[in-house]
Amino acid sequence: MSGEANGLHIDLEGALDADHIGDVGVPASAELLAFTNAVELGRGDIDQTRAALAAAIGAEATTEAAAIIAIFNGLVRVADGTGIQLDDGVFTASITERESLDINRFAGAANSADLQPAPSMPTAVHQLFG
């Protein structure tokens, strides 16, 4: 969504593919993905990937990237630990993407198995943290 708002065409499949480190349509994609993989998976050296990212986008933006990796490690734990369902609007709006990107294979999909497509809010990521 923010990609469209910023005039970018995002390769979602590449963004989700753990083996892909390269351009997905966002500036400094390769450095961002390499750093994320290093922190999350230990693939690559964290210090080296952080230095490469800082060279590409600056120290402050690199610190923000670290903060986002960190918070999403918390968000997945509160989401999966409390067993929340997808919001109705998101469930409906993401049917095609969840199938094409194979997201339905995740264990947490079972929590939303009884949902039915229905038009209601929120439908977008920016509406999730109000």
């Binding site: 910023n6 995002i10 966002v26 400094a28 994609s29 993905l33 402050e60 990237a65 986002i68 990521v125």
Partner: peptide, 8 residues
């Protein structure tokens, strides 16, 4: 960090 970079 831009919004698309954060979401990536």
């Amino acid at each position: 960090l831009s919004r698309p970079q954060a979401e990536l």
